[in-house]
């Protein structure tokens, strides 16, 4: 049997994902509209196009830290594009900066149980963890 902490994790992540899918649907439409606009103005290197992360510009966030971006892109291989998981691994999408930062710090110190996350978290300085948390925190309504 799985341990109960594992089931709790899966349950929480599924519930959260269910609600997020509604929010996401709207964002997706905004994103597509933004894309279309960008296509029409492709000749001009518009300010919106320079901001890395089309989804983020549609969500109305400001300039993305380029280092935060490259650090965060690797997370999506396990946690899904923009941190939206389609599988059993918990989503990062929608979580706040402070939640992600404290979770990563707890994985890093070993205070929080994990199979693989503590091995990853130990690869980042606290400042880098902050950058990653800020990157994903942009998708959250609670910054």
């Amino acid at each position: 049997m799985f341990s109960s902490r594992f089931y709790t994790l899966v349950y929480i992540s599924r519930t959260v994902r269910f609600f997020i899918s509604f929010i996401h649907f709207n964002k997706e439409i905004l994103f597509m509209a933004a894309n279309l606009r960008l296509w029409l103005t492709a000749c001009v290197l518009s300010a919106a196009a320079i901001i890395p992360g089309g989804a983020a510009s549609a969500a109305g966030s400001s300039e993305v830290n380029p280092r935060g971006l490259v650090l965060s892109l690797s997370c999506s291989s396990c946690h899904g594009t923009d941190g939206k998981s389609v599988g059993l691994i918990p989503s990062i999408y929608g979580k706040s900066t402070s939640y992600i930062e404290s979770a990563m710090l707890a994985f890093k110190s070993g205070a929080r149980y994990s199979t693989v996350m503590s091995r990853h978290a130990k690869g980042y300085t606290d400042a880098e963890i902050r950058l990653i948390a800020e990157y994903f925190g942009r998708f959250s309504r609670n910054k």
């Binding site: 341990s3 291989s77 899904g80 594009t81 389609v86 599988g87 059993l88 691994i89 199979t115």
Partner: peptide, 24 residues
């Protein structure tokens, strides 16, 4: 055994996300 079983589930979770992140 719990951890080895969790890793087997996460292997599936990883696969689903990486192929979605790459082609989906």
């Amino acid at each position: 055994a719990d951890q080895l079983r969790e890793e087997a589930s996460f292997a599936v979770g990883w696969y689903n996300n990486i192929v979605h992140d790459t082609w989906g």
